[in-house]
């Protein structure tokens, strides 16, 4: 083989330069060292008894959690409906807030690069950095428990997600189409309407449906912190240690997630 030939006849050939190899080796060493350090810090408080005991605990839990209590289902329909509403209404509100933000944040459509663009970008980053569960905790603490807090939590988290993807789509639009519309003497609004919106519309629908799918997942657990939906039942069942109910609720959540993923895949396929 030719590779063997080169290694034997040209003995100085090496895969990497010695310097790069050293750097690479050092890099891996660093990762291992950091890992060991972090591991020790993290497990300093760990009660290893519980960990060694985990297999028996798991068997015990399984025996208590199975079979799921299907009769509980009749009390789950309403929370399930609420969960879907939280996700859908939250997504709609999120879209309404995200669209103007995205146009303010995109470098090619923003009316002011110095003031509005950084502000819009800051809103998007803030919304993205905070998990919807944290948004929900915050809103429950402010507005009180209930669906409203859930809807707003989902909306506030969606703003950043949709806003970011949408403004990136706006920035990636084909300039020549925009230039052509500009050349006809169109006003700013008309350039947006004819040159940019048609180009980002498919991306917009795709992003929205994608986010709706994620929101169904997230709204299912918001009840854990009091923001309504099926998660509230999960929390109640956990508090009562009613494990067969917990199993049923987890199964219902799984089914919802699978269905919503299927729906969103179908819709996205139909759009694109």
């Amino acid at each position: 083989m030719s590779s063997q030939d080169t290694t034997t006849t040209v003995p100085v050939w090496q895969h990497r330069m010695p310097k790069t190899r050293l750097a690479l080796w050092f890099f891996w060493l660093l990762i291992v060292a950091t890992f060991v350090y972090c591991w020790n810090l993290m497990t300093a408080q760990t009660m290893w008894v519980f960990v060694y005991d985990a297999p028996t605990a798991a068997a015990d839990l399984m025996s208590r959690a199975w079979p799921p209590r299907f009769s509980y289902m009749e009390r789950l329909w309403k929370p399930l409906w609420d969960t879907i509403n939280i996700a859908t209404l939250g997504t709609l509100i999120g879209i309404m807030m995200a669209v103007p933000l995205a146009f303010l944040a995109a470098a090619n459509t923003t009316p002011s690069r110095l003031l509005l663009r950084p502000l819009a970008l800051f809103c998007i980053v803030t919304s993205r950095s905070i998990n919807s569960l944290i948004w929900a905790m915050l809103l429950v603490s402010i507005l009180g428990p209930g669906i409203l807090a859930g809807i707003l939590a989902i909306a506030l988290r969606s703003v950043g997600f949709i806003g970011k993807l949408l403004y990136e789509a706006i920035e990636e639009t084909d300039i020549s189409q925009v230039e052509a519309i500009t050349a006809t003497g169109a006003s700013k609004g008309q350039i947006l309407n004819y040159g940019i919106v048609p180009q980002v519309l498919p991306a917009f629908f795709g992003i929205s449906v994608f986010r709706w799918d994620i929101n169904i997942r997230e709204s299912a657990i918001l009840g854990l912190v009091g923001a309504g939906g099926i998660g509230a039942r999960l929390q109640a069942s956990l508090n009562m240690l009613a494990w067969p109910q917990v199993t049923l609720i987890v199964l219902v959540i799984l089914a919802t997630v699978v269905v919503s993923e299927w729906v969103s895949a179908r819709v996205r396929h139909a759009i694109i």
Binding site: S176, Q177, A180, Y194, Q199, P202
Partner: peptide
């Protein structure tokens, strides 16, 4: 225009 520059999705 060179590459037509039509708004393709209209």
């Amino acid at each position: 225009f060179q590459e037509y520059a039509l708004v393709e999705r209209l």
